[in-house]
Measured scan of single mutants.
Amino acid sequence: EPLWIRPDAPSRCTWQLGRPASESPHHHTAPAKSPKILPDILKKIGDTPMVRINKIGKKFGLKCELLAKCEFFNAGGSVKDRISLRMIEDAERDGTLKPGDTIIEPTSGNTGIGLALAAAVRGYRCIIVMPEKMSSEKVDVLRALGAEIVRTPTNARFDSPESHVGVAWRLKNEIPNSHILDQYRNASNPLAHYDTTADEILQQCDGKLDMLVASVGTGGTITGIARKLKEKCPGCRIIGVDPEGSILAEPEELNQTEQTTYEVEGIGYDFIPTVLDRTVVDKWFKSNDEEAFTFARMLIAQEGLLCGGSAGSTVAVAVKAAQELQEGQRCVVILPDSVRNYMTKFLSDRWMLQKGFLKEEDLTEKKPWWWHLRVQELGLSAPLTVLPTITCGHTIEILREKGFDQAPVVDEAGVILGMVTLGNMLSSLLAGKVQPSDQVGKVIYKQFKQIRLTDTLGRLSHILEMDHFALVVHEQIQYHSTGKSSQRQMVFGVVTAIDLLNFVAAQERDQK
């Protein structure tokens, strides 16, 4: 057995438009009618409502009807409940999964919650491996369901041993009777949507819809739904939504950006999952974080739909894509998950301010006199920076000697690579993860907040409520011999709460 199987392995699926269902090699399930009293909570997966979006479509000038398939009504709160249950049931049916076995899954959280929910009911041990950027709410729900959680670096490539995929496979090879159901490759993922989600949409719309818009992560949702719609409703256009920084969209030119990270969760990847059939997507749109969270908040405030950030991405694209539809036509959007997962993220004004998705003037509360002053007023001194090749031991000596707790790590040209902190280095040394002679590049981390000289002290204040420091950066445009230009970030300084307090105190003292 291989040590790991690539999540982007070539698909062996034989589905073709027009091929009889009787030739399918898979076990198919028909939607079942729910009894009045459910035998367990797993029976509350599927049969989610279709809700008309009344205000947002009109606000953006849509002539067509805009409908939302509300997947956050599933038992675990997301569309991923469907595939989690289906993968477990299919693994039980073919004898792969037996009582007492362990389920391991690399996930952005929602599939993990679905699997942990099913594992709690069915009696399996469950280990979820997820990147650090995923919300604390997801972690809390997983723990409450009895799952064990392993976190991995957000910026690790999918084929790196440190990625959530790599760590999951390492655990599988170490733990007896453990299984990775593997949402990236498992046919049960798109089949769950082909058999149930798509049929529900067709039934709820009486077979009449002209466009379907869905955000894409593993691709199982859009693949399964689109294949069924292509068979039953061939005139329906399928629109895929991919965040900026991901590479799922086609044509490839759409993916060209210097951005590699994004805040919206559960969609987009740096590889093409095996289950994603991009041939059934008629057109791709890219979405960005700001519009995703703005539209998610709009869905909550104006439509009462308590959905997550990827739902915002989907609707932001839908109001663009559906401009081509006329009166009497219908566009369906998939709202994948609930706001429950993001209470401390985009639902929080403070978080939105820190990330730059909300401006101070958007909030009406009274601010102190210094709130709208610029960061450049602080008069920061030149920063202490270190090269990635310097040793951890030497870096600790320098920081202690100069009285700093942290320093930016830059390359020879001064471009920011990340940050090192005294606390992080000492804990890594004590844990045996690094040696004093190791290069400081081994303990770089990139989960820090950046701020510009033109940003306000109010925004800085919000950042420092949650973080010990902020890195002050400025952009530099560099022209190359080819005539092309590129933008790079340079370090201007490091600012802490002490710097802000000293500035405010000094100004008030001078005024007296």
Rank of each mutant, 00 (worst) to 15 (best):
E244R: 07
V504M: 10
P388N: 08
L426D: 05
C307T: 10
K449W: 14
T364K: 12
T274N: 03
V494T: 07
V333H: 00
G379I: 12
L417C: 11
L501K: 04
L453N: 12
M419S: 14
T294Y: 15
L380K: 11
R278A: 01
V319D: 01
M352Q: 01
Q487M: 15
G393Q: 11
Y479H: 05
E258G: 15
Q447F: 11
L471S: 10
P251G: 08
S313C: 09
L353A: 11
T364W: 13
Q447G: 06
V440E: 04
Q406Y: 09
D349P: 06
G414T: 14
F271R: 00
T496F: 14
E250S: 05
V443H: 04
Q507F: 13
I300F: 05
Q507R: 15
L429I: 15
K320S: 13
L378M: 10
K355H: 13
V440H: 07
E290T: 10
L464I: 15
E291Y: 09
L471P: 14
I247A: 09
L384H: 09
E265T: 02
Y262E: 02
L426P: 03
T421N: 04
N341R: 01
R374P: 10
A318V: 02
F404G: 03
S310C: 01
E397S: 06
K359C: 13
E250A: 08
P436R: 13
W371Y: 10
Y445W: 03
T456F: 14
T456Y: 13
K449P: 05
T482S: 15
P251D: 02
I463T: 15
A506I: 10
S313H: 03
K355I: 03
L430E: 13
R488I: 13
P368M: 07
A296P: 01
E412S: 12
V241S: 13
E244C: 07
P273K: 00
E508K: 13
W369V: 09
T294F: 15
W371L: 08
E361G: 13
D405Q: 09
A318Q: 02
Q478P: 15
E253L: 08
F404A: 08
L426Y: 12
R374Y: 03
Q478V: 06
M466Q: 13
I451L: 13
D405F: 11
L373N: 10
R509Q: 14
A407N: 03
G379A: 14
K320E: 12
T260W: 15
N424K: 12
L380D: 10
E265H: 05
T454L: 08
T314G: 15
I398A: 12
V280E: 11
M466V: 15
D270A: 02
R452C: 14
A431R: 10
G483A: 15
E465K: 13
Q489N: 13
R452P: 03
L380T: 12
K286M: 00
F503A: 09
P251R: 01
G268V: 00
P243A: 04
W284Q: 00
Q489H: 15
S437M: 13
E327L: 09
G493V: 13
S485K: 04
I498N: 09
L422D: 11
T274P: 04
E361I: 10
F503D: 03
R452V: 11
E360F: 12
L399M: 12
L353K: 11
Q450W: 15
T421L: 15
Q511V: 11
K286L: 01
A382C: 04
V264I: 12
V495H: 08
T482I: 13
F492G: 15
I463R: 07
I238R: 00
V332H: 02
A506L: 05
W369A: 11
L430F: 13
G493L: 15
M352Y: 06
S338C: 07
N341C: 00
Y479N: 13
P251M: 05
T496G: 08
M490Y: 13
V410I: 13
P436N: 04
G458F: 11
L387A: 11
S246G: 03
A292R: 06
A316L: 13
K366L: 14
P408C: 06
M490R: 15
Q302P: 04
K286I: 01
A431P: 12
G423Q: 06
T385N: 12
I416F: 08
G245S: 03
F357Y: 09
Y479D: 05
G403M: 08
I416L: 14
T456W: 14
E365D: 15
D438P: 11
A497H: 02
H468S: 14
A311H: 06
G458E: 09
G393D: 07
H394V: 12
L358F: 11
L353P: 03
G441V: 07
L299Y: 03
L399K: 06
S481N: 13
E263M: 07
D277Q: 04
T456I: 08
Q478S: 15
E265F: 00
V491S: 03
V280M: 12
